[in-house]
Amino acid sequence: MAKKVLIVSNSSDLHADLVVPILIGKGCTPFRLDLDRFPRDYELCQRFRQGEWGGDLRHLPSDQRVGMGEIGAVWARKPAEYAFRSADLSAQESAYAKQETEQALFGLLMALDCFWIGHPSAVRAAMWKGEQLKRAMALGFRVPATIVSNAPARVRAFRQGVPGDIVFKSMSTPALGADEVAEALRQTGGIGTTIVSEEMMDNIDAVGELACQFQEYIPKQYELRVTIIGEQLFAAKIHSQDDARTMVDVRDMAAEIRYEATTLPAEIERRCRAFVAGYGLQFGALDLIVTPDGEHVFLENNPAGQFLYIEQLIPEFKLLETLADTLLRGAA
């Protein structure tokens, strides 16, 4: 019997929405677990008895079921807040419900011995920006001169030691936590990579509150988004310097800059593949700078990064289909 694919994400994930029909078209009906509707819309059971283990999931609205022994591949896409059947849980009840749900669900999923795209332990190991920079240097990449510190004097000394500009770049999210609180409680929508002005340096004592990351600003010829899915590598050349809005931070999608397919030098491709494989991952989305002198500079890797926009901008990159095919090969 052919093994099945389990997709773990949330109901707002367009990536999962588009991969599901591709899998169905290839003869595989996946089981989708939307965490923002779990456990409200699902039943879970895990059993241990006389040396045997088993478990299953059931989607209540559709009555779709999957046994753990049927699963050959898991795509862990995006997290979400859990949903419970009772809407009036107290603060303590809600906190406990979340903790127990986490134990029940991941106690089941982490027991699976199958192919994963985005195994939670591997993704967690790969998400730390400081460790990424160290690993990239070990592979031969140049990385920007960087300091992460909550010591204002050390940040000032770093600034004085860099010949050009420096930038502030959030290590966790450019939303600065706005996505974690109710809209009425948000103080700012966030901040992207930002060149540090003299006015900001005058207020640098504020970093004493928490450690912040500062890097030398690297002049760019263009940027690269390198997406690795299984054995396939897709390199997108991003003409970020064509628009003032993307010169410092390429993430302003309102700017209609050019994206095009490109080929990496063999050594750079080797380093990118080795970087992702070193974590035991089947997926990675790496951001690189190419300087005016043609040097490749590593910025970061996104172990569960977005990739649909790359396919939309470069239609010849069949990323969704490659993802589906990789899951099916892994399940087989």
Rank of each mutant, 00 (worst) to 15 (best):
K3W: 03
K3P: 02
K3Q: 13
K3F: 11
K4V: 03
K4W: 02
K4I: 03
V5P: 10
V5M: 04
V5Q: 06
V5L: 07
L6S: 10
L6R: 06
L6P: 07
I7A: 03
I7Y: 07
V8M: 08
S9V: 05
S9Q: 04
S9G: 15
S9Y: 03
N10K: 03
N10W: 00
N10C: 15
N10E: 12
S11V: 00
S11P: 07
S11C: 02
S11R: 00
S12T: 14
S12I: 04
S12D: 11
D13Q: 01
D13L: 02
D13I: 02
D13P: 11
D13C: 14
L14D: 12
L14A: 14
L14H: 10
H15Q: 13
A16G: 04
A16T: 15
A16R: 00
D17H: 14
D17C: 01
D17R: 13
D17W: 09
L18W: 05
L18Q: 15
L18G: 02
V19A: 07
V19W: 05
V19N: 10
V19G: 06
V20C: 11
V20M: 10
V20Q: 12
P21M: 07
P21F: 03
I22P: 03
I22N: 05
I22A: 06
L23W: 07
I24K: 15
I24M: 13
I24T: 14
I24H: 10
G25I: 04
K26E: 14
K26N: 13
K26D: 12
K26R: 15
K26T: 01
K26G: 01
G27T: 10
G27R: 08
G27V: 07
C28T: 14
C28W: 01
C28P: 00
C28V: 15
C28D: 10
T29E: 14
T29L: 12
P30V: 06
P30N: 06
P30W: 08
P30S: 04
P30C: 07
F31Y: 14
F31W: 09
F31K: 03
R32P: 01
L33Y: 05
L33Q: 01
L33N: 09
L33A: 06
L33G: 00
L33M: 01
L33E: 01
D34C: 13
D34H: 11
D34A: 14
L35R: 04
L35N: 05
L35G: 08
L35D: 08
L35K: 07
L35W: 05
D36K: 01
R37S: 13
R37L: 14
R37T: 13
P39I: 02
P39M: 06
P39N: 05
D41L: 15
D41C: 11
Y42T: 05
Y42N: 06
Y42K: 09
Y42R: 07
Y42E: 07
E43H: 10
E43V: 11
